[in-house]
């Protein structure tokens, strides 16, 4: 009887708490929008004040017009599609390679001794330094751009996966061994799940870096994509398009991160 009463009381108190927590979450999410709105207002006021010419600082509304213009003739979608395609392909290749090599280096001290110093040296090369070489090797097609994105995505995944696996929870690994798991099974059932949070933070970093390297690639040698839009609008004096491209890059980067974050939440829902 007391038990039933207790659970009844529990439910009654639990509900408002949950509602309050949800309300707080919304308010926290809304808090993130305050700064962009302030920036928009300041931007609009400054642009309208006549302090700068419209070539230097177009108003937010004219940027919106530019968006409409490019969306209208369809070229906007081509630019976005080609950029997204490059990021997705490069990220998949780079993160995949980073994962495999990171796993090998993380699991084998010998492999680490042989490979890790060289990779660390390669990592120190600034991204733009690769561009001339990639152009020379792969021409001006999709090859060099996707490769550059892949290079950018490789290192965060490689670093986090190798470090995490090398320091995977020794207690859990021992349990796995004590209960007969070895090799691939030990890796798949114990080690990878136990380092999954680290892997995801590596993937998110890699995706962000992929966008970074994409713009570097498109700025230098391309005829399509958001990076190309940046240089092209600079050359033609279309500052409104330039700003629009920046806003688009920010939005796409954020959307990609949110999508990956949703996958992460789903996969890690039972991790501490």
């Amino acid at each position: 009887m007391t038990l039933i009463e207790a659970t009844g009381a529990d439910e009654e108190t639990a509900k408002p708490v949950r509602k309050r927590a949800a309300g707080r979450n919304w308010r926290l999410a809304a808090a993130g929008l305050v700064l962009p709105v302030v920036v928009l207002v300041v931007w609009q006021v400054t642009a309208a004040s006549g302090l700068y010419s419209s070539a230097q600082l177009p108003s937010p509304l004219s940027v919106l017009d530019a968006l409409g213009e490019l969306a209208g003739d369809g070229s906007l979608w081509t630019h976005i599609a080609i950029s997204v395609q490059r990021v997705v392909a490069g990220f998949a290749a780079g993160a995949g390679a980073g994962f495999l090599l990171g796993a090998v280096v993380g699991l084998s001290a010998r492999a680490r001794a042989f490979v890790a110093p060289s990779i660390a040296a390669l990592r120190a090369v600034p991204s733009l330094a690769w561009v001339p070489l990639l152009l020379l090797w792969f021409g001006i097609g999709e090859g060099p751009k996707i490769t550059l994105v892949a290079i950018g995505s490789f290192f965060p995944v490689y670093t986090t996966v190798s470090a995490a696996l090398a320091h995977a929870d020794a207690h859990l690994v021992e349990v796995g061994r004590a209960y007969g798991l070895r090799g691939g099974e030990l890796l798949g059932r114990i080690m990878l799940p136990s380092v999954a949070p680290a892997i995801f933070s590596g993937l998110r970093l890699a995706l962000a870096q992929g966008w970074l390297f994409l713009v570097a690639a498109e700025l230098i040698a391309s005829s399509m994509g958001l990076g190309f839009l940046l240089t092209d609008s600079q050359n033609t004096g279309r500052t409104d398009i330039l700003l629009m491209a920046i806003v688009l890059l920010a939005t796409l980067g954020k959307v990609c991160d949110v999508l990956l974050g949703l996958v992460e939440r789903r996969v890690l829902r039972f991790h501490k």
């Binding site: 207690h171 859990l172 021992e174 039972f270 991790h271 501490k272």
Partner: peptide, 13 residues
């Protein structure tokens, strides 16, 4: 079969 000092359960299972 071993039981350790800590439970050592897999938290995701």
């Amino acid at each position: 079969a071993v039981v350790f000092q800590e439970p050592r359960l897999l938290p995701w299972r």
